[in-house]
Simulated assay, not measured.
Amino acid sequence: MSLHTLNPKFKRQSNREYRSRENLEIDEIISLIEAAGSRGRYKERDRTLLLLMFRHGLRASEAATLKWDAVMIKTKKLRVNRLKVV
């Protein structure tokens, strides 16, 4: 249940009001990728997926729905179904 259903007069504030920044710093991204590569059952997969997401600006849902037929090794291309058009 959202605040809109509890209080119809509620207006969501901008993201700036809820958090101080939108993006991770480079050193935070590096730490995240290193941490993913040091624990868990599929270390290389997790590390590679985070690196792919960072380099190509993928959302979590876009990365989660990637399939092998979207990877074209010979042409070095990756087909991604974008969920949000900018």
Rank of each mutant, 00 (worst) to 15 (best):
L49V: 11
K76P: 00
N23D: 07
S2K: 08
R16M: 01
S61Q: 12
S20W: 03
H56I: 01
T48E: 08
N7C: 06
I73V: 12
R41M: 01
K74D: 14
R39M: 08
L32F: 10
T75K: 11
T75Y: 09
L32Y: 07
L66C: 05
S38A: 15
R41S: 00
F10K: 00
T75S: 13
S14C: 10
R47L: 11
F54T: 13
I29H: 08
A63C: 04
H4E: 14
G40L: 06
R55K: 15
L78T: 03
L66F: 09
L32R: 07
G37D: 08
K74Y: 10
K43C: 05
S20D: 06
I30V: 10
L51F: 07
R45S: 13
L58D: 03
G37P: 03
T48D: 15
I29S: 05
M53R: 05
H56R: 11
D46L: 00
R45L: 12
L24N: 03
G57F: 05
R19T: 02
V85R: 15
R12I: 03
E28M: 01
L52M: 10
K84L: 05
P8I: 00
L24S: 01
Y42Q: 14
I29D: 11
H4R: 12
V86C: 10
I26E: 13
E22F: 12
V86K: 14
Y18S: 08
I73D: 09
Y42S: 14
R41D: 00
K11C: 09
L32V: 03
R55C: 14
I30R: 12
T5S: 09
L78F: 04
L24D: 10
T5Q: 11
V71R: 04
K76Q: 13
R19N: 02
S2A: 12
K74H: 07
T65I: 04
L58F: 08
M1A: 13
A35L: 05
A64W: 00
W68L: 15
R59Q: 14
